[in-house]
Design a protein around this nucleic acid. Structure first.
Lengths: 348, 348
DNA sequence: TTGGCAACCTGTAACGTTTCAGTATATTGA
DNA sequence: TCAATATACTGAAACGTTACAGGTTGCCAA
């Protein structure tokens, strides 16, 4: 066997291999331990040595080997985003991802996407991550008031943040959009347009923000003295066709609503289609207030009233929260709520 | 680090720690080496021993420590998806991600998302991945005919797949949508509707699929004897407002087109808005054929003609291609092209 | 002079895995 | 019978990192 350069023994300057602490140690004439400590600004290292080591490290482009660190310390430098892969509707997922990556861009963290399908127990991917120690922090969405995943991670002591609040009397980081305020503002805007028989197209039943939305809707209804037209057969995670058909059905009845509040842009497309299927006209016979995460709804129908929800911001906030918790901050301080924009009409 | 109770010596059955090869070795009474080999079906292990080890491993839920494997072998079991985080327009990114995760779900692979912003050199993230050995395989998009990233990875010998083809005389795995066929079909459909002055809203200039689209468009134009109305000021990665304004401008001219071919759904919304800004009517004054990745365009305007592009499929194909290359397959056999659907009119 | 004490640095072990170079036992061939 | 060989297993080393438990200096007080 012909050893190519050298035995990769103590004398390693051969250029092409990725530098390690050993390389640095050899180059500086110091011990590996000293180099390791110098790089992380340990106090017992002389100021000059520290500077020297850091200079050389930068020069040769030293980057710690993730596997080495992880094996030794258990620190993965990984954040996992746990996603349901069957959000059939419009995808805000990329925005969340972009938001997360924005925050972790200048940290050593990598983002891994951990999927689960609807058929699985949502706890499965979380259990996997925790059991295999695959991440230092986890972000979950589709949060429920009593969320087994949050409970599980709290028990195991692994940092996480939820997109959406829980209601278990337990404290943990979260970011949420204020859907109570959204639904309220929506109702008030419709009332201001003279609408007083309102229907709500809700978030998926079971998720926390379903409750906030429903409550915000109900409270504002009594505040403005409008009444609800029940539309419980529909929620935003149903298929476009379902929503459209149900809406058309509803709109052909005598006691049809004259206003809709919709929790998602894709559902809104279906609602409008249903309205028009029934021969009615948006803006004349009925108004619709909808949340949206991109600016597209006003291109669709300018009569729509929209409220913007910024998922990129959500991603950023969630990432900051998890990193904060990992960094030792008090989880109770890592909670944020995003206030809806005003209800916006089309502006030419 | 203050870890555990006992010294974690040879006697480790204490239940709560994650099992390692050492645990298995102790439980089976074998050596660590034997266990390691038995788990990967090495030939020099007795059949019974093999079965015994694998049984115990399954029973206690042994999972290899990724850091250990990675440190020893360099194998990361990671696929990286490299993404530009400034696709302002409608996001097909989540579909690709879902497609990828579908394929790697029952493999040991994790998916990491590596972002870069428009201001950066697209080569940066790829260089980072290769230099730090952070992934066994890479998926890139926004592929160019002469793509420095593909060239770089070929030089370094790291498996990858591109979303979109290159044209460098180098062979590598890819998946692509047949945009030549798409543009051609679109033109023929418009011609069949009696349209013969057609404008093309192109993909971003510089990307490979720009060329295929333009060529497909041009070839079909001469085939059907229609003419092109130049619209070079616009491409799909411009802002909605830009596209809308330019379209309105164009449509107010006397020599306006009577047909559009649009390479992206979000751009199509803007085009239609622009058409209507100019006081014209879709289906009467002008027809539009558009690609879409979700079924929403027909809700927007039923007069639209659509062609579906399946990004989830693209994600799956790309993942299969990378895994195939990692597994030693011939890169030349890992190329696939997705044929567009027919041009579809609205069906009630 | 000496003992003590900072200040600064170092070698060794360990994390979990795979590879290398074996060893021990049984089996075969002549 | 004895060596050669196949079969089944094993310990040690190494990947790159950090924690632990020291080791040298040099300086100062007694």
């Amino acid at each position: 066997m012909d050893r190519r350069v050298t035995k990769k023994g103590d004398d390693d300057t051969s250029g092409k291999e990725r530098p390690t602490l050993k390389t640095l140690a050899f180059m500086t004439g110091l011990g590996v331990t000293t180099v390791s400590r110098a790089l992380k600004d340990a106090p017992e290292i002389g100021a000059e040595t520290r500077r020297r080591v850091q200079l050389v490290a930068k020069q040769i482009g030293y980057r710690p080997n993730r596997a080495g660190v992880r094996l030794r310390t258990g620190k993965t430098n990984v954040i996992s985003l746990v996603l349901n892969t069957e959000h059939e509707l419009m995808s805000f997922v990329s925005d969340i991802i972009y938001g997360v990556t924005e925050v972790i861009a200048d940290t050593p963290y990598h983002l891994i996407v951990t999927p689960y399908s609807r058929s699985q127990d949502p706890l499965d991917p979380v259990r996997y991550l925790v059991e295999t120690g695959s991440a230092d922090g986890v972000i979950i969405s589709r949060t429920q008031p009593n969320d087994p995943r949050a409970r599980y991670m709290l028990e195991r002591g692994i940092p996480f943040a939820t997109h959406g609040r829980t209601d278990m009397g337990l404290v943990h980081p979260y970011h949420d959009f204020d859907n109570y305020a959204f639904a309220g503002e929506a109702v008030r805007a419709l009332a201001a347009n003279g609408r007083n028989r309102l229907a709500l197209v809700t978030p998926p039943i079971g998720l926390t923000y379903y409750r906030y939305t429903v409550n915000g809707f109900a409270d504002a209804l009594s505040e403005v003295g409008a009444s609800e037209v029940p539309f419980n057969t529909v929620s935003i995670d149903q298929s476009i066709e379902q929503i459209r058909m149900r809406t058309a059905q509803l709109m052909r009845r005598k006691d049809r609503p004259d206003g809709f509040v919709s929790s998602a842009a894709a559902a809104t497309l279906a609602i409008v289609a249903g309205i028009e299927d029934a021969g009615l006209k948006l803006g004349r016979d009925v108004d619709v207030v909808s949340k949206q995460s991109s600016e597209l709804l006003h291109l669709f129908r300018r009569e729509l009233l929209v409220v913007n929800e910024n998922f990129r911001l959500a991603g950023s906030e969630l990432a900051k929260a998890v990193l904060g918790w990992i960094g030792g901050a008090d989880p109770g301080t890592l909670q944020s709520l995003s206030t809806p924009s005003e209800v916006l009409p089309y502006r030419g």
